[in-house]
Amino acid sequence: MLKRVLPALCLALPALSALAQTEAPPAAADAEAGAVPEQILVVGQKPGPGLWKVSKDGHVLWVFGTYSPLPHKMEWRSQQVESILAQSQEYLTPPGAHASVGFFGGLALLPNLIGLKKNPDGATLKDVLPADVYARWLPLKAKYLGDDDGIERERPIFAAETLFSAGLKKAGLSKGYEVQRKLDDIIKQHKIKVVKTSIELPLEDPSKMLKEFKQSQLADTACFSKTLERLEGDIDAMRVRANAWAKGDLEAIQKLSYPDQETECGDAMRGAEFTKTRPGFQNVKERMQAAWLGAAEKALAANGSTFATLRLADILKPDGYLAALKAKGYTVESPD
């Protein structure tokens, strides 16, 4: 539980760990989202999208765009990705932020984890949510979670995480972790140097931080509401986007917009009182991007070929990571 909850408290991350990578690229108008062209998830072996090529002076950074959720029964296999990754000198990990307390520090924190996900003062979801939002929650809870009354005492942000995961599972979707596991196997097999690009968040007094979190309120109603909105009307579109990624059809992904609960959920944590008094937890998204860009430029200067993975959202948005490299004078080419 410590490994799950503590990173969430370090959030200052772009979104909750359990919701990570569900963000789609900036999308076109919703007019095209009304007609969902397919319902059946692709199964079997699929390649996913091609690679973005960032280059300068004969040095190349290959970037693979990851996406979630993906079809549960899909087996990912891309000969292009495998070949280029195997010939690269370094692999850059995705941007991130983490905090470490060590083994014994973790043991000391265990008593403070009890009740961490609960609302302060024994409040229930009905107590902390607007009546109309709670009314929307009840049928979705019945559909995806059944008679789980214990979740009624959890904070909205954690209840939303549980509900969303259950909704994905019922829709035949998964978080897509298998893709990263395959990449890790190739990296290990070819003994490719791994360059960690994540930043570390300082935890001078993690026990105090946990206590403050348990006592503080979170402005997480918007996160909860956006999650409901996705499950109410976006499941079919999520299936289409999952199929599109598996087939390498980026155009289809971009045509389907959706309610963005990630931003709302991330803001709820980043704006919480327990982070405002900690300088090390400020401007985390900007620091993450700066750290990754620094690692990318260093790798481009040193290696003939470097491989990296980024979320599609971070690749395609106008102010994303590859746009920043392009602004610095690098040539950026999209997959064919």
Rank of each mutant, 00 (worst) to 15 (best):
L2D: 09
R4E: 15
L6V: 04
L9H: 04
C10W: 06
L11E: 12
A12F: 12
P14Y: 07
L16P: 13
L16K: 05
S17D: 09
A20E: 12
A20K: 12
Q21N: 15
T22A: 10
P26W: 03
A29L: 11
A31L: 15
E32C: 13
G34Q: 08
V36F: 01
I40P: 01
L41N: 11
G44R: 10
G44I: 04
Q45C: 03
Q45W: 02
G48D: 07
G50Y: 06
L51D: 04
V54C: 01
S55E: 13
K56W: 11
L61C: 10
W62R: 11
V63F: 10
G65Q: 13
G65T: 15
T66C: 05
P71H: 02
M74C: 02
S83W: 11
I84N: 09
I84V: 15
L85C: 14
A86W: 05
A86I: 09
Y91I: 11
L92V: 14
T93L: 09
P94I: 12
P94Q: 10
P95Q: 12
A97P: 13
H98E: 14
A99G: 12
A99M: 05
F104A: 07
A108K: 07
L109D: 06
P111R: 06
N112C: 07
I114T: 05
G122V: 08
A123E: 10
L129M: 09
P130Y: 02
A131L: 09
D132P: 02
Y134A: 02
R136Q: 13
L138A: 11
P139C: 03
L140C: 01
L145H: 09
D149P: 04
I151G: 06
E154P: 00
I157G: 10
I157M: 14
E161L: 08
L168M: 15
L168W: 08
L168Q: 09
A171Q: 06
Q189R: 14
H190R: 12
V194H: 08
E200C: 00
K208M: 10
C223H: 06
K226R: 14
L228M: 02
L231C: 07
G233L: 08
R239K: 15
W245G: 00
A246L: 05
G248M: 07
A252W: 00
A252D: 03
Q254K: 15
L256P: 07
S257W: 02
S257E: 02
Q261N: 14
T263H: 13
C265T: 05
M269Y: 07
R270V: 10
A272G: 15
A272E: 14
T277Y: 00
T277S: 08
G280N: 01
Q282P: 04
A290E: 14
L293Y: 00
G294A: 06
E297I: 09
A308N: 12
T309Y: 08
R311A: 14
L312T: 04
A313H: 11
K317D: 04
P318G: 13
A323E: 06
A323I: 03
K328P: 00
K328R: 13
K328L: 00
P335L: 02
